[in-house]
Amino acid sequence: MRSTLAWGLGLAWMVFAAGNLVDVAVRGSGPSAHLATAALVASCGVVYVLVLRPRVTHTEDTLRIVNPLRDVWIPWKSVTQVDVTDVLRVHVGEEVHRAWALRQKSRRPKFSVFGGNNSTNSGTTETKEAPRDVDMMADTLRDYAERRAVLDQGEPGPVRLVWSPFALVALVVPLAALLVVIVLP
């Protein structure tokens, strides 16, 4: 579960950057080619970590939240609440784990830009907002957690919080190379 638009734009950037890297390799030379290459590779690392990597997945036993630099594995029996603020949040007792991948878009305005309102023929000005994708996903995860809590017996397992070494390398190494290319002539 992730934003399809963000994932598509991230993938489009990767294709664009790959095409430019081929162009720099074929026609580029000198310091400007090194700078362009380092900037493109650094931008790909940033896009991977911030756009392509974040997601929420689940198995029969656990819910996995993949954020830019950390992964969180939460046993279903440990989930106490799932809600939405600016992002999807999963509560485990007093702990709150936020999912970068499922962000809430801003609410739709109840009144139009031209001063009219969205009232119905009955004269009421009350409007009902359509459910957002992140709200529907929170409902789905909440229902799944409740079903798994009933089915699972015994004590819940521990929540595992793990830094992603691949994400750290994908971000730090290209940015360090870009810094070296900028600083050294």
Rank of each mutant, 00 (worst) to 15 (best):
T4W: 15
A12Y: 05
W7Y: 15
M14S: 12
W13D: 03
A38S: 14
T37N: 06
V15N: 01
A39P: 02
G10V: 07
W7V: 12
R27I: 00
S3V: 04
N20Q: 14
L5M: 13
R2I: 08
V26I: 02
T37G: 13
L5P: 07
A18P: 00
V24R: 04
N20P: 05
G19A: 06
A25H: 01
S3L: 04
W13V: 07
V22Y: 09
A25N: 01
A39T: 10
A33C: 04
G30L: 03
A17H: 05
A36M: 13
P31W: 12
L21Q: 13
G10K: 11
A17S: 08
M14F: 14
A39W: 08
A6P: 06
L21Y: 08
A12V: 10
S32Y: 06
G8D: 00
D23I: 02
A39K: 01
N20L: 15
G8Y: 03
P31I: 10
A25T: 05
L35W: 13
G10E: 12
F16E: 04
V15T: 11
S32K: 09
L9A: 08
A12P: 04
R2H: 14
N20I: 09
N20F: 13
P31F: 12
M14H: 13
A25E: 01
W7M: 15
G30C: 02
A6R: 11
A36F: 07
T4N: 08
L35K: 08
R2C: 09
A33Y: 01
L5I: 15
F16P: 01
G10Y: 08
A36L: 13
S3F: 03
W13A: 05
G10C: 10
G28Y: 00
R27C: 00
